[in-house]
Design a protein around this nucleic acid. Structure first.
Lengths: 235, 235
DNA sequence: CGGTACGTTGAGTCATATCAACCATAGTGG
DNA sequence: CCACTATGGTTGATATGACTCAACGTACCG
């Protein structure tokens, strides 16, 4: 009884597959994934895995948005990154053979493929081009993490909030009316920036009075990107 | 005229080599490194590479301590990590084929081997066990970076300073009199914690009056580790 | 001896967290 | 259908952690 069942194509014709690290797999390897993968439909709030758990595979996001976060003091979430169409999650834990260092939860209803660990390990060992691509992925994530450490340590909340808005624009884009294509609660925004919910609310309404953004419930319309860039102190 | 020239052994008998990711290399691969590597003696303050530069190889630390940092607002350094005997630096940029996202500077006089990029790339492509080990390394660094993002976003400066002291104990150890085996300026400490130099000074002398540490110039003696753990809020 | 880099302390300020109250909305169950 | 509850959003008042600025001390170095 799923009125809107989303079709999951075979891996070899899946646009995600063709545009990701998977494009370095051979026909045989692709078929193997296709055979072994499961696909799942998930709703907002569903949890894919939690910090500390042992993981038997990783996920390829076909659709929707997932937040990847750590749980800190008093259970406060720190959002580390988002995963959307074409992104992989949980592969880090598989590769390092450690328990998950983050949790993952659905933000917008998603369709994902679950691929068992052993496939990833095998491909890394047997397909050097694929290994190299996965390695690049990890290295890029590492570079981003380092940059974020510096930001969070040195910038004010105001600067960081402006910067996050710009990141969200880059990552998820704007619709025809310049609304951000991702909707987050104030609390989620606070958990990216690393601040209190109330501070996000105050700063957003400040940005609004300065005519940099407009607010429509959870939807954020970008009016003046240039000034946001100035505020965010990126160079 | 170097009175204390430190002997660099051939790679195949180098203790660093035998205890690092390099142990997965074949005899031939090891010989190749041995043949192509350069070794360098560096003094405090020497710079190995700087953010944004293109890198033609990576470094294996034989001795001494290096700080790896990003330059943020107004040139303020954010120290990302330290590298000591047996650690590798700059390999991230080589693997992802990007310019360096950090700079590296000598904190304690060091001896390092410089190994050209192409060797690393070749070994990753041709030696799956080695590739896997390097990958684990990156993944672990990533896990640490994520944890640090959460800390810095959620903890107070006081908590973070205590935590950093504990990290430094774990990473560099204590001598017979419980002095930390790494000496940093107050500014460097501040640049790890992500705070102002004055704040570090005030908090250190607070820890001192609470009899948690003793101070002797730049040397820090650990007196009560338990309480430091309590303050740092790790669980 | 003057210079430079580092360390320390005090005073004042400000950004941000915290606490508290209140509103809006939607879902739930009797 | 209404009270009830939970969740998210907003605003105000207040507290305070941490930064900044400034002055001064200390130590080492050529």
């Amino acid at each position: 009884m799923r009125p809107k069942e989303i079709h999951i194509p075979f891996c070899d014709t899946c646009p995600v597959h063709q545009n990701s690290v998977f494009r370095h797999l051979t026909k045989e390897e692709t078929d193997l994934i296709n055979f072994e993968k499961e696909h799942r439909h998930l709703k907002r709030g569903d949890v894919l895995y939690t910090e500390g758990s042992r993981i038997s595979g990783f996920y390829c996001i076909n659709n929707g948005i997932i937040k990847v976060y750590k749980t800190g003091i008093d259970g406060k979430e720190q959002i580390i990154r988002f995963a959307k169409k074409g992104d992989l999650i949980a592969y880090r834990s598989v590769l390092s053979n450690e328990t998950a260092c983050t949790s993952a939860k659905v933000i917008e209803d998603s369709t994902v493929c679950f691929i068992p660990s052993n496939l990833l390990i095998t491909f890394v060992r047997e397909n050097p081009s694929f290994a190299m691509e996965i390695m690049k992925l990890t290295c890029q994530e590492l570079a981003e993490a380092n940059a974020y450490i510096t930001d969070i340590a040195q910038k004010t909340v105001r600067e960081r909030l402006a910067e996050i808005l710009l990141h969200l624009i880059d990552e998820f884009g704007l619709d025809e009316q310049n609304y951000l294509r991702i909707t987050l609660t104030r609390e989620e925004l606070a958990n990216i920036v690393g601040t209190a919910t109330e501070s996000v609310i105050r700063l957003l309404s400040e940005f609004k009075s300065d005519n940099l953004i407009a607010l429509n419930g959870r939807r954020i319309k970008i009016i003046n990107r240039k000034i946001l860039e100035k505020i965010s102190n990126i160079f």
